[in-house]
Amino acid sequence: MWKAEIRVLLKKSVLDPQGQAVENALGSLGYGNVQDVRIGKYLEVSFDAGSRQEAEAQVREMSERLLTNPVIEDYTFELVEE
């Protein structure tokens, strides 16, 4: 069994209005040193696959077909064997 820990963030070129709002809120709490906040999604997908290589290929496929929108989002992932 594999567990993919997938992190999805808006691309750098896409403005993140939620991150901006949180950044401003942190600023008003006195954290004047905060320069950027980006808000994304974290997904855990548990599944069976024959090998690490096969598991990685599947995570990429799932991410590109459904879990992310490649027009506005980037993703990274880690695979944990369970």
Binding site: L10, V14, L15, P17, Q18, A21, N69, V71, I72
Partner: peptide
């Protein structure tokens, strides 16, 4: 339609939230 790839681009959170 955008998600289906029938139109180009994407729609996301309004800038004013």
């Amino acid at each position: 339609l955008l998600e289906a790839g029938l139109l180009p681009g994407a729609l996301y959170r309004n800038i004013n939230l």
